[in-house]
């Protein structure tokens, strides 16, 4: 299959990933049914993971690996979890993307990877304090389009 990322883009990503601090693991969830963008999304992540050894990728299927999907709260395909990696341990920060991260959203994925790599949300102190004391789960869904 033809590459989705050309050499020029790979070079740019390499430079950006030079800022990565700690390892990051992407968990990809595909599905054989009703998933127009699964193959392309998977290929995109595979090409991306090949750029830097600090960035890993595991491939799952929403149905075949229903237990892993439930563990990471993934209910859509393609679904991508951007998690921290510490040795063999995957630490879920609750950051995920549903759909193919193309166009503008590709840049958002790169930023998410850097954010998780830095292990810092960048939020202000009062906001951190508020979120620390949440009594109920909070689910934010940010609807976006690729352009």
């Amino acid at each position: 299959m033809e590459k989705l990322l050309n050499e020029q883009i790979i070079d740019q990503i390499k430079q950006t990933f030079a800022q990565m601090k700690e390892p990051v693991q992407m968990l990809f969830f595909g599905s054989r049914e009703n998933c127009d963008y699964c193959a392309e999304a998977r290929q995109l992540l595979e090409e991306l993971a090949a750029v830097d050894e600090k960035l890993g990728l595991s491939i799952y299927d929403l149905q075949d690996n229903a237990d892993v999907a439930a563990q990471f709260n993934v209910d859509k395909a393609p679904g991508i979890v951007i998690a921290a990696k510490d040795g063999d341990q995957i630490i879920d920060f609750g950051i995920q993307y549903s759909g193919i991260p193309s166009g503008h959203e590709f840049g958002v994925l790169i930023n998410d990877i850097l954010l998780v790599s830095g292990r810092d949300s960048g939020l202000s102190e009062p906001v951190r304090e508020f979120l620390k004391h949440l009594e109920k789960p909070l689910h934010l869904q940010v609807f976006v389009t690729p352009t």
């Binding site: 979120l131 909070l138 934010l140």
Partner: peptide
Amino acid sequence: MIRAEGVE
């Protein structure tokens, strides 16, 4: 406790 999901 907090889940942030980008949805296309």
